[in-house]
Design a binder for these strands. Structure first.
Length: 224
DNA sequence: GCGACAG
DNA sequence: ATCTTGTCGC
């Protein structure tokens, strides 16, 4: 079997990073916003996408995916490991999200191309990076994360890092995340995380199998 | 060469 | 991310 080629992966990031559009490519305020997160079960990644309406913060629909993991976790190359499962979950949503919140960094990345940006470019959809810990850049006044003369993102309360993923401006990204924050993480992500853990637990209890998800037998997550 | 390092 | 009990605080 082929092993992961980090050198080529970095080249891919440099190439794709040029496709990033750092401005709003959707009308603000958005109609709905999705959040995607993963849970690991054995050598599989379980992806969950939760779509909510921006105004009322109500769940519109959810989608689940499962994808075998064959790439190791390497800081700055996280996208190559997690994007397949995340993309599949989003594609399974019946409604295309106006914006997607990703549980990872976007522009806050040595090549300005974190997993949130990668997912956005691959799917051609607006994405926002929302991470729980730093990865790159230095923190400045007001929480801005910079590298040289570039403003990569912002550190909000509760140590949450927000950055541009794709097709969105940093200002809009922050507005969206702030408005959907009831707790530490914005609702779409908080719920996607909770749902992924629920699925994971059900799998360990043999209530469902990875095949049920892959075959599309289990697409909805009943938890609310 | 050494240390840091999303999930 | 994942492995895990109790525990502090609103």
């Amino acid at each position: 079997m082929s092993i992961f080629d980090a050198k080529k992966a970095i080249k891919v990031q440099r190439l794709l990073s040029r496709k990033i559009i750092e401005k709003d490519m959707f009308v603000f305020p958005p109609r709905n916003v999705a959040g995607v997160d993963l849970a690991y079960v054995g050598d599989y990644a379980i992806g969950v996408a939760v779509l909510m309406d921006f105004d009322g913060l109500h769940v519109i629909e959810t989608a689940v995916s499962a994808h075998k993991i064959n790439i190791p976790y390497i800081p700055t190359l996280l996208a190559f490991r997690e994007i397949p499962a995340m993309a599949k979950a989003i594609k399974r949503l019946r409604t295309r999200p106006d914006v997607v919140l990703v549980d990872a960094h976007g522009k806050i990345h040595p090549r300005r191309f974190g997993a949130a940006s990668h997912l956005g470019v691959i799917l051609g959809i607006p994405t926002i990076g929302v991470a729980k810990s730093p990865l790159f850049g230095s923190e400045h006044n007001g929480g801005k994360i910079i590298d040289g003369n570039d403003i990569l993102g912002v550190k909000l309360n509760k140590n949450i890092y927000v950055s541009v993923g794709h097709m969105v401006s940093l200002d809009t990204a922050v507005k969206i995340v702030e408005k959907m924050r009831l707790y530490r993480l914005p609702e779409p992500l908080r719920r996607a995380h909770k749902a992924a853990e629920k699925i994971k637990n059900d799998m360990k209890l043999h209530k469902i199998t990875v095949d049920d998800i892959i075959q599309g037998r289990i697409t909805q997550v009943t938890l609310w």
